[in-house]
């Protein structure tokens, strides 16, 4: 905290509490995360139906790579014996022990929204609250019985409704910048993870590329990012792995491509940090600029030569760093969530 000088104390414009800014940021990230997990899970459940004949080893490999892409493989191993449709759905959709499960994400999004209810529109709050109430009323067995499609649709719709309502009811203010920054940061991260599921196919020395299963799997990757239709419009030809990867990384018009997200991240970050000069002053802005420069100057061959997996991991690292630095820079209090003790005190009050 800059304790040395006191700033002008009563600015005429609306000010935003650091805590509020961060809750907006996390609320936005969590709902985007929930939506992405829902898509990833749905598409892959669907994919397995298309390949009923797949042997046990391949099925396991399939689910393992999905768990791996979420980065929670250790947690999964701790609590589940085998990776199959059932256990992975439970883990990714409902398990509160997994902080990245859909339920945990929606819960966190709502909890953040609850902390700043006075700051967001009633419509935004009600959408999150309803989604949460819906999720709480569901469990794996129900979802299975009713067919998971309805369930995943509700999650995706909830997220889309929330983002649409945010656009329609929330003032274009500093809070908006935090919401957008959080959304695109999360989206970029998830797109790298969706791509990473299939990275082994694009290893420089990969040999068996192009089979029927492979095409279907790349279709699934595109669908996981809601990108199949957009891809088809851009490339009328068949789905080629390197083209699909190129699309998800470099497209400058598709709103889930890494490049598109990086443009938005850079833009909102500059506004949040007040970076007006051509040459950025903060580390965060420099990192965002570098990420954007990479995505604007590299080609898919560069990426494949360097290794897709390594490339994606580097991007994930730099996204983490950017997010972390923005939080640090705009924060004027130690970042800690309520401890249990504090909860009790609040209740007694």
């Amino acid at each position: 905290m800059p304790a040395t000088k006191l700033p002008p104390s009563r600015p005429q414009t609306n000010v935003m509490l650091s805590r509020v800014a961060h809750s907006l940021y996390w609320m936005s990230r969590y709902i985007e995360r929930a939506e992405n997990i829902a898509r990833l899970l749905e598409v892959n459940l669907q994919l397995l139906l298309d390949f009923q004949g797949l042997d046990e080893a391949h099925r396991k490999e399939h689910w393992d790579s999905i768990i791996l892409s979420t980065g929670e493989e250790k947690l999964f191993e701790e609590h589940y014996k085998v990776a199959d449709s059932r256990s992975v759905t439970e883990f990714l959709a409902f398990d509160l022990r997994n902080p990245g499960s859909i339920l945990a994400c929606v819960y966190s999004a709502r909890e953040n929204a609850r902390m700043i209810r006075d700051q967001i529109s009633a419509e935004m709050w009600e959408t999150l609250n309803e989604l949460y109430l819906y999720l709480k009323s569901q469990n794996t067995a129900d979802v299975w019985a009713a067919g998971p499609h309805e369930f995943f649709s509700r999650i995706k719709q909830g997220s889309h409704l929330f983002q649409g309502l945010t656009g329609a009811t929330y003032s274009r203010s500093e809070g908006w910048e935090f919401i957008q920054f959080g959304k695109y940061l999360e989206r970029a991260d998830k797109t790298t993870r969706i791509l990473d599921v299939k990275y082994h196919i694009l290893l420089p020395n990969a040999s068996d590329v192009g089979g029927a299963i492979d095409t279907a799997q790349w279709q699934a990757v595109l669908r996981s990012a809601s990108a199949l239709e957009a891809y088809r419009r851009a490339h009328v030809s068949a789905i080629l792995p390197w083209k699909a990867a190129e699309f998800l990384i470099f497209s400058d018009s598709f709103p889930r491509s890494l490049h598109y997200c990086a443009v938005q991240i850079e833009e909102f970050l500059r506004r949040i940090l007040g970076e007006t000069a051509t040459r950025p002053k903060s580390d965060a802005a420099r990192a965002a600029r570098r990420l954007l420069a990479d995505l604007q100057s590299l080609t898919i061959s560069n990426v494949i030569d360097a290794g897709l997996h390594e490339f994606l991991q580097e991007i994930q690292t730099s996204l983490d760093k950017i997010g972390e630095e923005v939080v640090q820079t705009t924060m004027f209090y130690p970042a800690e969530s309520s401890t249990e003790e504090q909860q009790q005190q609040q209740q007694q009050q």
Binding site: V15, M16, I272
Partner: peptide
């Protein structure tokens, strides 16, 4: 009006400030 928690406020020179993204506001 803003809703604040104790951790959003800080006292300096016997004045109370809230911690905002733009710094301290009385």
């Amino acid at each position: 009006i803003p809703i604040v928690e104790g951790r959003d406020l800080v006292v300096q020179g016997k004045k109370v400030f809230m911690r905002t993204t733009a710094g301290l506001v009385q």
